[in-house]
């Protein structure tokens, strides 16, 4: 009886999935001509707003939009742009060499603030749900794991710090950097049998890092009249000390993510104490 019901369920689910699949594939394979469709194969980036992020001429584009009104939408690529050269160009908007970073932290920094909040609230919920979780012991770590954990821990942390400090220059940034540090904490949990959770410490670090992010935003609001404005000089593109608050925010994000995820892993492991 139960099996029949399962079969019927599976059948209807399969039917729904097939219908949705036809729906999606039909949408994706719509022929060109009848209105806009997904920009496939060689997407014309000059039809998208990101052309200005790439060329770093958003302020010019704002002026162009204000002057030419709706004709802007047809002539995005006519917006003036300056020549960008690694290690030479100064004050190229945010000044970060990694375009993804400049979008994540600068052009759309507000999303990142929300994203950090999502992580914050979910780790908070995890702590609430699991605070009386009993510690589960894993198989006794072998000598190699123990030694390896002790030996590798500082290097992994250092690598994580490197990743988020260089977030505005190289691939990486606050989120992967923080996660790498959290994986060092994971290594300690697996490698050290008598690992003690340090939740109060992570809480304080997390709070201060979050405060830095939101506080930098508010400083921008009160000095330059807009939340999360880059109020520091953005420097030469490609240098370590450049891109103003972008680098600072990414460092804060890295520290915050590291603290949050480490505490999340500790609480997942159990034995969390306040």
């Amino acid at each position: 009886m139960k099996n029949t019901q399962g079969m019927v369920n599976a059948f209807f689910a399969f039917l729904l999935v097939v219908i949705l699949g036809i729906f999606f594939f039909n949408a994706i394979n719509q022929p060109l001509g009848n209105g806009l469709v997904l920009n496939k194969d060689n997407p014309d980036l000059s039809k998208r707003v990101s052309i200005h992020y790439i060329l770093k001429n958003v302020h010019n584009a704002e002026d162009y939009l204000a002057q030419h009104k709706s004709s802007y939408f047809r002539n995005r690529d006519k917006v003036k742009s300056s020549n960008l050269e690694f290690g030479k160009t100064k004050n190229a908007e945010s000044g970060s060499a990694n375009e993804v970073t400049s979008i994540v932290v600068n052009y759309r920094g507000f999303d990142t603030l929300g994203e950090v909040t999502v992580l914050f609230i979910s780790i908070l919920g995890l702590g609430m749900l699991l605070h009386e979780n009993k510690k589960k012991y894993w198989a006794k770590p072998s000598l190699i794991v123990r030694t390896g954990a002790n030996f590798l821990f500082p290097f992994i942390v250092l690598f994580g710090v490197y990743v988020f400090v260089h977030g505005h220059l190289t691939p990486g940034g606050g989120f992967p950097g923080g996660t790498i540090i959290a994986s060092a904490a994971l290594l300690l949990i697996l490698g050290l049998k008598d690992f003690k959770n340090k939740l109060t410490m992570t809480k304080i670090i997390e709070s201060l890092a979050g405060l830095t992010f939101a506080g930098l935003g508010l400083v921008g609001l009160f000095t330059n009249g807009s939340f999360l404005t880059n109020f520091l000089p953005s420097g030469t593109m490609g240098l370590l000390v450049s891109s103003g608050i972008t680098a600072l925010i990414y460092i804060a994000v890295g520290i915050k993510v590291a603290a949050e995820l480490s505490s999340g892993i500790m609480e997942m492991n159990g034995g969390g104490e306040e």
Binding site: V49, A61, E62, Y107, F110, S226, N230
Partner: peptide, 10 residues
Amino acid sequence: IGNWKPPFGI
């Protein structure tokens, strides 16, 4: 927000 006018910023 961030001194980027729409539609470029949020």
